[in-house]
Amino acid sequence: MSERDSIFEERRGAMTGLAYRMLGSRADAEDVVQDAWLRWRGVEAGEVSNPAGFLNRVVTRLCLDRLKSARARREVYVGEWLPEPVVDEDHQDLGEDLSVAFLLALERLTPLERAAFLLHDVFDAPFAEVAKTLGRSEAACRQLAARAREHVKAGKPRYRPSAEEEQRLTSAFLAAALGGDERVLRDILAQDVVMHADGGGVAKATINPVFGLEKAVRLLMGIKKKFPAPDDTVARLARINGAPGIVLSHAGVVFQTMGLEIADGRIVAVYTIRNPDKLARLNS
């Protein structure tokens, strides 16, 4: 492997992590990194004095281009949009701060706010480099990052459950949801729990988030009654975007993931992905 190839491979994980946070899609992130590879190969050896800065700049600009069409697609997206799940060891090369709540907070930012915040606060790029990437002044980039920081602060989980608590609550939720145990659901779900679901208009899923314990229990009991999991469904505990979760499969095909957010001994949010396009990576 040449030195230039080695430099790119050393940066691949960071670039994919940046692109995933920008786009919310692992598949799109990998496409962006592949495009960045082509740009990198087109640069003369010795022409780039700061490879990390150059590659971050290329990836960010490619992501900003993609976000223009992505925003248009999301305006007509059926139901709630959730980021593509990153399961188990898949997240290890992408860094920390992959929680769904954090990614949804990023989604509410403008593309430039998102880029400025990620480059500076997550990937430690100096504002001079951020300004060069975004074609804005350093002062403007500081303002973009500051505005983003305030919005993102609310999206970062403030509670870190222990491994034992995660295991206990995830196992209990899995058994209660599949078995229709209303009593256990009431014991483990928070009063203000929020149920999110993304079916993309392809798979059955709620169109809007469901808020509160009573509605969440009714939803889960209704799903158990009207749309039970197929016979011989295989369920396993997993890490989804760095948090506890569940992967459901049938005949070797993953048809659903459920990421859990836990706080103060209760499940405060459930993020269900049923859109097969967002599960395709798990079946490849």
Results as ranks from 00 to 15, higher is better:
E3S: 05
R4K: 14
R4F: 09
F8G: 10
E9Y: 07
M15W: 05
R26D: 06
A29C: 03
E30F: 10
V33R: 01
R41Y: 02
R41S: 01
R41F: 03
G42W: 02
E44I: 05
E47D: 12
V48S: 08
S49P: 08
N50P: 01
N50I: 04
A52D: 02
V59S: 11
R66E: 10
K68V: 14
R71V: 13
A72S: 14
V78Q: 07
L82G: 10
E84W: 12
E84G: 11
Q92P: 03
S99W: 00
F102T: 08
F102Y: 15
A105Q: 06
A105N: 08
L106V: 07
E107T: 03
R108I: 00
F117G: 00
L118A: 06
L119W: 00
F123Y: 15
D124Q: 13
A128L: 13
E129Y: 08
A131W: 11
G135N: 00
S137W: 07
R142E: 14
A145R: 12
R149V: 02
H151F: 05
K153H: 03
K156H: 10
P157C: 14
P157G: 13
R158Y: 05
S162I: 06
E165G: 15
F173Q: 07
G180C: 13
L185C: 03
D187V: 00
L189K: 06
L189V: 12
A190G: 10
D192S: 14
V194K: 12
V194T: 11
D198N: 15
D198W: 12
G200L: 09
G201T: 04
A203T: 09
F211Q: 07
F211K: 13
G212E: 09
E214G: 09
V217M: 04
L219D: 05
L219W: 07
K224T: 14
P228G: 02
D231F: 07
D232A: 15
T233G: 14
V234E: 11
A235M: 06
A238S: 14
A238H: 11
R239Y: 06
I240W: 02
G245F: 00
V247W: 08
V247D: 01
V247I: 13
L248P: 00
S249W: 00
H250I: 07
A251D: 09
V254K: 03
T257N: 08
G259T: 10
G259M: 15
A263G: 07
D264T: 06
V268T: 09
V270N: 02
V270K: 02
N275C: 08
K278R: 08
K278D: 01
R281L: 11
R281F: 12
L282S: 05
